[in-house]
């Protein structure tokens, strides 16, 4: 049993976007020369991730993921379950917190051209001061979680060889129908 094709496409598209997003985020806060260009990428990319994460959640509800192998130890099963909840929470939560914190700071949230998102929180510097470090902390948490996810996926693919990795693998050629 594999993830359906939309799930696999969404997974790998978002993997690229989220990794790019995390690297842009960590670079922009220490880069004077490229700060503006990086922030200008960070905003629309974040909204893109938010939209795709919502689509993905809907797809997951309609097409539940394949079962984990029966011989997987219980703690690994629980870790997989918990980490997926956290991954979804952060994929949705980080862009929302970013949007909310920029709203609280009173910044126009430009996505490019003349497109500006409406604020989702009232303007309040105190809220901004609270959300801004939270956004960073959760971004680090997401990066850590992605590293754990990557390590676990490779354990399945290279060592356990139990079909978990290949259930999400993106095949360039469509497999011939049986």
């Amino acid at each position: 049993m594999n993830f359906n094709r939309p799930a696999r496409l969404l997974h790998w598209t978002m993997a690229g976007m989220i990794l790019a997003m995390l690297f842009i985020g960590v670079a922009m806060v220490t880069s004077l020369a490229h700060y503006d260009a990086l922030v200008a990428l960070h905003r629309p990319l974040g909204i893109g991730i938010l939209i795709l994460a919502a689509l993905r959640l809907v797809n997951r509800w309609r097409h539940p993921p394949p079962e984990l192998p029966a011989d997987l130890p219980g703690w690994q099963r629980q870790a997989a379950h918990a980490s997926h909840i956290l991954l979804y929470g952060l994929m949705l939560g980080l862009p929302l917190i970013g949007w909310a914190m920029l709203s609280a700071a009173g910044y126009p949230i430009g996505l490019g051209g003349a497109v500006v998102l409406p604020p989702i929180l009232p303007r309040d510097p105190t809220i901004y001061a609270w959300l801004r470090p939270l956004h960073t902390m959760l971004a680090y948490a997401l990066f850590g979680l992605i590293l754990a996810h990557l390590g676990a996926a490779l354990m399945h693919g290279l060592i356990r060889k139990d079909g978990v990795f290949s259930s999400m693998a993106l095949r360039l050629t469509t497999p011939r129908s049986r």
Binding site: M28, A33, V39, P125, T126, A129, W130
Partner: peptide, 17 residues
């Protein structure tokens, strides 16, 4: 310009709280 944008954001984030 980019440096001003970056430094202003830093000053704003610090004083906001």
């Amino acid at each position: 310009l980019s440096a001003r944008s970056a430094a202003y954001a830093q000053s704003f984030a610090r004083r906001a709280g």
